[in-house]
Each structure stands twice: as structure tokens, then as C-alpha cells.
Design a protein around this nucleic acid. Sequence first.
DNA 1: TAGAATGAGTTGCGAACGCAAGCTATTTGG
DNA 2: CCAAATAGCTTGCGTTCGCAACTCATTCTA
Lengths: 248, 248
Amino acid sequence: MAKRDSTILQIVTDQKRVEVAYLAERLGVSTVTMRKDLDALQEKGLILREHGYAMLANPNDVGGRLAYHYDEKLLIARRASELVPDGATIMVESGSCCALLARVLADTKKNLTIITNSAFIASYVRDSAQVSCTLLGGTYQRDSQVMVGPLVRTCAQEFYVDRLFIGADGWIDGVGFTNADQMRADAVRSMAASASEVVVLTESEKFGQRGAIPMRLPGKQMSVITDGNIPDEWRQSLARSGVSVTIA
Amino acid sequence: MAKRDSTILQIVTDQKRVEVAYLAERLGVSTVTMRKDLDALQEKGLILREHGYAMLANPNDVGGRLAYHYDEKLLIARRASELVPDGATIMVESGSCCALLARVLADTKKNLTIITNSAFIASYVRDSAQVSCTLLGGTYQRDSQVMVGPLVRTCAQEFYVDRLFIGADGWIDGVGFTNADQMRADAVRSMAASASEVVVLTESEKFGQRGAIPMRLPGKQMSVITDGNIPDEWRQSLARSGVSVTIA
DNA sequence: TAGAATGAGTTGCGAACGCAAGCTATTTGG
DNA sequence: CCAAATAGCTTGCGTTCGCAACTCATTCTA
């Protein structure tokens, strides 16, 4: 079933809006079964339903980004969750892998505190009594539901944690991780100043890409968790920069 | 149609979960029309739909509280919106009237900045390009999606505005406005310290009630906007305390 | 190892839904 | 003052939905 789920996600991600009947036929199951699958995916926040259709959420929305490469992201999130013991307090930034990590933690751990600048993550784990969320203040980015700006720094200074989990939009040899959004990159820096270690969660695909904004976290102990498809070229590049790599 | 809407809300608020067909018959319209009405109400975030049913959102959820006495609250919100000019920056707390005020402002004003401790409000006006939201940081209350705790104070100190709009859960003669939730009451105090005037938005019904936590905003210039059903007894009580009253 | 319990899927059916077309008042404008 | 436009609602129709009953493997378990 997990297999079928990811096929569905791939099709929906491609086409944005698909008929339920079409999906049922294409995957060789009844429409009833397909509806069940789709309902489950909607529960997870990965797609939206309409009468007769399954649609992708606004791709600026974290929900939409989650659906893309869901399997890899889930593996990465699961692996990252092993770093977090029951009762811990961690910081989590707004990337889609990070949201998934929060979800996994909410489902498997006990008595966690998650400090984040993502209102999406806070509401994403709202149903779990096991995690308590602290939301960092800031300017609310409409599309992404992420807090940015100077207030994030002011808030983050109030905390200090072992680990900060962040996403990334690219990697440039000799420069480091990059981000596509300047405000969010700055928020990451603010949060990183209050954590002793930064763990980057990102699909291997990102290593071919280059976001415009270097993350610049000099002197920070960094590690990355990614999937198995990362080319040797980039593994070596990461090693040269002193970033330890974990394959999920 | 606004008339029918409020009847629907009343029924749904009472019964929590009603069949569409029942509502259609009771109000003497076709099921098609009823579905249209219900869809519109869902758009506004007042109810939830299920196949064949209309339900009230979790009453701890702001959405659920909104449905109760919607008409009065909307009148109050509209009246309050007259105090806010285009381009202004205001603070808004997490009450249901406040959420409605934010909605009205988003629909009618231009280029506003709303500073709030309610993640619900931030997402409630997310579709409007005319308001930019600043969300104060804090501990995320699961049910209400409101930020509370010491971080709210830290954040609020970064701002100073003309007006803060708040809700209230009760009024006690000689004591003042009260709240049912200690954490939220404290958040209100934090925000009030950064505003020169506090405007309380509350249905007249609340004046018979007494929340357990006195708001205690000594020396603050206060006014209240409420609906026409407020008894003379309480009007005099408010006047004695130097609180000016506006009837919406 | 037989038999119960579980999970994933299907079929069948009545009820609910979306959409388009049509009806009837009220409003608008020349 | 009458015709056209508009708003609010209904009817009709084909499609989709939720639910319950059923099948068929797989997994426990005694």
C-alpha cells in the first residue's frame, strides 16, 4: 500500500488535478479503494480532495512540497528521528523534511518540545498530546506560513538546544548549503546561533542545485541526512567541508 | 440570506452535527440551496462539512466559537473596523470577535499590519494581500492556536501601537474585565503594555458572566464595543469604571 | 496444523453532490 | 414604463460518495 501511495503522489504531483476514477483504473483497483487511499493521503496533509478529484495543494504550501519525493523525505525524517530521545527539546526549521520529522516525532516519541518558526509545523502536530510547540515570533510569510525577520532572532536568543534541524535548497562546493529565500536563510542563522549542532535534512536531488542565498553558518558543527542517491562527487565535496553524511 | 445563515448557525451550534436534508426541510428550501449556504459558511470558517452533514468545529477552536452569536460578533467587528484607517498597524488578541475584526479588515482595508498572538488569525487572513501579519512568539496552545507565556512579553516589547483589540470572557463590577484562561490573560497584559489604548470587543451576553481571571490593566485607557442588548445595570457599572461604551 | 482473527480489496445500493438549465421576482436603465 | 439584467431558488440528470456485506489471502495462536 505504501507502494501505491507513492505512485499516487507522483501522478498527482505531475498533473495537479486528477480524477479519482482515472487513478483507480491506472493503478488497477476499485474506486472505493482509491478513495480510501486518497482520504488517507489527505489526512496526512499531502493532497486535497474535491468531489471526484484529487488535487495538489498550493506548491508554495508545505503540504504541496511534501508530496514531492515523499518516500525519500519520509526515510530521511525517520532516520533523523533516531537522534531525538524522549523528553528532548529540539529546534526545527520550516523545510518540508523538517515538517515530516515533526510528524514522525509526534507519532513515535513522548514528551517532546519542538521550537520552530513554522506555523505549519505547529498546526501539523497539533493533534499529538506528546509534543508541545513553541512558535518563534516574526513576520508571517503568507505562502509558507513561516516566521521570518528580526523578531525571530530576538525569540531564538531565549533558547539554547542541542540540535537544530533545517532543510536546504542546494549545495555549492566551497560555499556550503544554500537557500532560495533570503528571509528564511536569515531565520536559519538566527536559530543556529542557539543550537550546538545543526542537522541538515535534504533529498539527494538538491545536491545538483544551487539556491541563490548561501546559508553561511561558519564554525558550526554540521551534519546532513540524505537519501542513497547522492553522487560520490558531492559526498566528497561534503567531506572536504567537514560535513558528516548519513544515508537514510 | 443573511437571515437564513444565522438560523443555520444557531441550529448547528445547538446540535453539533445536522443532516443537510433536515436543514433544507426546516428552512423550507431545496437541498441544493442549503448546500450552497453551507459551503459559503464553511468558506468563512464557521462550520465544517461532511458528506451529508454540517458540523460545528471543535468549540475550543476559534472557528467553533465564531459560529456562536455570529451576527452580534460581526456587527461588533464592523464597528471596530471603523477605528482603523488604511495603512495602520494594530495589535489584535485571540478572541473570536478579534478574529472577525481581522477578517473584516482584510476584506475592506488596504495595507494594514496586524500584530497578533493568534496563529488562527494569521492563517484566517492569509488570503488577503492587504494585510501583513506579525505573529508574536510563545508557547503554542494546542486547542486555541494561541501563543502564550513569557516569550509573548519579550516579543510584544518590540512594538508600540495606538490600539490593541482584545476579547473578554466576563465583567465584574469594581474588578474589571475577566478572562477564563490565565495564560491568555497574561498574554493580554503583555500586549497591552505596548499599546496606548485597549479596545474590548465582546457580546453583551458576557456581561452577566465572570471569568475566573481578572484582566487587570490598571491605568490603561479602555473602551468597549458591544451589542445593543447590554443591560443598563452594566452600562452604569462600566461608566463608573471610566470605560466608554460603544454600541455596534 | 486447524481455526480464528486480521487486513486489503470488491460489489451493490441508496443518498449526496456538482453542474447546467429553467423559473420567478426584483432591480436597473434608456 | 417597459425591456434587459441580475439575484435567488428549484428541477433534472449523471456522477461520486459512504456504508455494509462479502471474498480472499495472511497472520496469529492454541
